[in-house]
């Protein structure tokens, strides 16, 4: 354990305690650490972008093939000044347009179509006949039951996000009655999903706490062994 390790361990422990002090309430030391963290994270990210992406690209390609990307980057950097910011709009447009297309294509081929098909796959004759053919009637019934629950949950959850409403004069626009009933069922499924998600977040935070305490105890133990 060299000096850098001791020094680094000390800093890490100090920062951990200062962040934990937030449990007592917001305080200046907590804010100082948070601002230091933001500076470090931003500087680290910028340096990585430069060192791991931009420089390797410029080093590995001939200059002729870099003209266009350099032009885009140059246009983007005009946004640093409000006077020239409008020149950077095409570069932003490239990012937005391509990003939108990537998102649309991915959503269709990766989520929408497979998930729509998957919602009905529990009732596919192949799966059911396989289960019934093997004599696993319990499995087959369980498959049907789970499939029905998933189908109902999926449809009703989607209906919950349906916000189309009928407008009536001098009244608050309301969804149709049937949609309202279905959406209430969907709201129940979403409440269950959020409850499970909450448990996951708590588990993650708990393990983060455990890891922090573990690293603190490790540092103290190693420090104790030095002396």
């Amino acid at each position: 354990m060299n000096f850098a390790d001791i020094f680094g361990g000390f800093f890490a422990a100090l920062f951990t305690f200062l962040i934990f002090s937030y449990a007592l309430g917001d305080n200046a030391l907590f804010r100082m650490v948070v601002h230091i963290f933001i500076g470090v994270a931003a500087g680290y990210a910028a340096a990585v972008a430069l060192h791991s992406v931009l420089l390797p690209a410029f080093n590995s390609q001939p200059l002729s093939s870099l003209v266009v990307p350099l032009l885009w980057i140059g246009l983007l950097f005009t946004k640093l000044s409000p006077r020239t910011a409008v020149l950077g709009n095409p570069a932003s447009a490239l990012l937005v347009g391509v990003g939108a297309a990537v998102a649309v294509g991915g959503a269709i081929q990766g989520t929408l179509l497979p998930q729509l098909a998957g919602s009905a796959s529990y009732f596919s004759p192949e799966r059911l006949s396989a289960a019934f053919g093997d004599g696993r009637f319990g499995d087959a019934l369980g498959l049907l039951f789970n499939g029905a629950v998933i189908l109902v949950g999926t449809v009703t959850s989607l209906a919950y996000f349906h916000f189309g409403a009928q407008s009536r004069p001098n009244q608050v626009p309301q969804r149709r009655r049937i949609i309202e009933i279905i959406a209430r069922v969907g709201q129940g499924f979403i409440a269950i999903t959020l409850g499970v998600l909450f448990a996951g977040v708590y588990s993650a935070a708990l393990v983060a706490l455990i890891e922090r305490l573990d690293s603190l105890f490790n540092f103290v133990g190693r420090l104790a062994r030095l002396f």
Binding site: G8, A12, F15, I19, V34, F37, A205, A208
Partner: peptide
């Protein structure tokens, strides 16, 4: 060193506080 002793402990500690 910067990543291990500053960035990671602070972020992890913020997450740990969230448990409470």
């Amino acid at each position: 060193w910067i990543f291990t002793n500053i960035q990671l402990p602070v972020e992890a500690s913020l997450m740990a506080v969230m448990a409470v």
